[in-house]
Deep mutational scan, measured.
Amino acid sequence: NQASVVANQLIPINTALTLVMMRSEVVTPVGIPAKDIPRLVSMQVNRAVPLGTTLMPDMVKGYA
Rank of each mutant, 00 (worst) to 15 (best):
Q9M: 14
S4I: 02
T15S: 07
A16N: 08
I11M: 06
G52K: 04
S4H: 01
A7D: 00
L17K: 00
A34T: 11
K61N: 15
Y63Q: 04
S4Q: 02
T18F: 09
N14H: 09
N14E: 11
R39K: 14
M59E: 03
R23E: 07
P12Y: 09
V41G: 02
A16L: 10
E25T: 07
V20M: 10
G62F: 08
T54P: 08
R39W: 10
M43H: 08
A16S: 11
V30C: 08
T28L: 04
N1Q: 15
A48R: 09
Y63S: 04
T53I: 12
L51I: 14
R39P: 03
V20C: 13
S4C: 04
V60K: 00
I11N: 00
V30S: 12
G62Q: 08
R23C: 09
V26N: 10
V5C: 08
V27T: 11
Y63L: 07
D58L: 09
M43G: 04
R39Q: 11
T53Q: 06
V27E: 02
A3W: 09
D58F: 06
V5G: 02
T18N: 05
V45P: 03
P50Y: 09
V60A: 02
P38R: 03
L55P: 01
M21T: 03
I32L: 07
M22V: 06
T28D: 15
R23P: 02
Q2H: 15
L10E: 13
T18P: 00
M59V: 08
G31W: 02
A7Q: 00
M43P: 00
M21D: 05
I13M: 11
P50V: 15
S42T: 14
A16M: 09
T53R: 07
L17I: 11
L55W: 00
K35T: 15
N14R: 05
V49N: 01
Q44M: 11
T54W: 02
A7R: 01
V26H: 12
I11T: 02
Q9T: 12
V6K: 03
A7E: 00
M59Q: 06
R39A: 11
L17F: 02
Y63T: 04
V30D: 15
A16D: 14
G31C: 03
V60D: 02
G31Y: 01
A64I: 14
V26C: 14
V20H: 08
G62H: 11
L19E: 08
V6F: 02
V20W: 04
S4D: 01
P33M: 12
V41R: 04
A34R: 03
I37M: 11
A64N: 13
N14W: 07
G52W: 06
D36G: 03
T28I: 05
L17A: 00
L17N: 00
S42N: 12
A34E: 15
V41L: 11
I32D: 01
A16E: 10
D58I: 09
N1W: 05
G52A: 08
I37Q: 12
D36M: 04
S42M: 06
P50E: 09
L17G: 02
